[in-house]
């Protein structure tokens, strides 16, 4: 198990553009969208980090931008990091798919696409998971549904 500082150092070498916000519960790494796949690939294949288990993948809408959040764990060393990527284009957000690295990402990404409208490049089967095709993206903060959601 690598400490927070050791992980930070390793990731700095892998990806010099990475930012490390202070004062977070877990180690967070903010990476530009176009570099996140390459970083994850290195983190997974490297012997020292071996992040082979994608616990969770989700997105958060901040109205000015969107953030895609990945929680990665190593089943061998049990260290845990949070990868983040900020997508400033809310109209047409897109990021690389993690399906090639973690098969489970296929369905997490379909869910995110369904609820946030974030496109995933190189995704094998990017269809909506829960909702109908013309529903809109309900987890976006500016989503309005006059019929079903009562504003308080």
């Amino acid at each position: 198990m690598l400490s927070r500082q050791e992980l930070t150092d390793i990731i700095r070498i892998f990806e010099p553009d990475a930012e490390f916000p202070e004062g977070t519960q877990l180690l967070e790494v903010i990476v530009p969208a176009e570099k996140i796949f390459a970083l994850a690939e290195k983190l997974k294949s490297d012997q020292k980090t071996a992040f082979n288990y994608l616990i969770n993948e989700t997105a958060v809408d901040f109205l000015t931008h969107m953030t895609v959040v990945y929680h990665l764990e190593s089943t061998e060393f049990r260290h845990l990091i949070v990868l983040k990527s900020i997508l400033s284009d809310r109209e047409n957000p897109a990021i690389d798919s993690f399906t090639a690295l973690y098969p489970t990402a296929e369905y997490f990404e379909r869910e995110i696409f369904d609820l946030f409208g974030i496109r995933f490049n190189n995704h094998p089967n990017l269809k909506r998971l829960f909702l109908e095709d013309d529903y809109g993206y309900p987890l976006r903060k500016d989503f309005r549904d006059e019929i079903n959601i009562i504003e308080r």
């Binding site: 082979n52 288990y53 994608l54 616990i55 089943t75 973690y102 098969p103 489970t104």
Partner: peptide, 12 residues
């Protein structure tokens, strides 16, 4: 229903 360890980790 054979599920290898790699499959289990990969699919979470």
């Amino acid at each position: 229903g054979y599920m290898s360890k790699e499959t289990a980790i990969g699919y979470g």
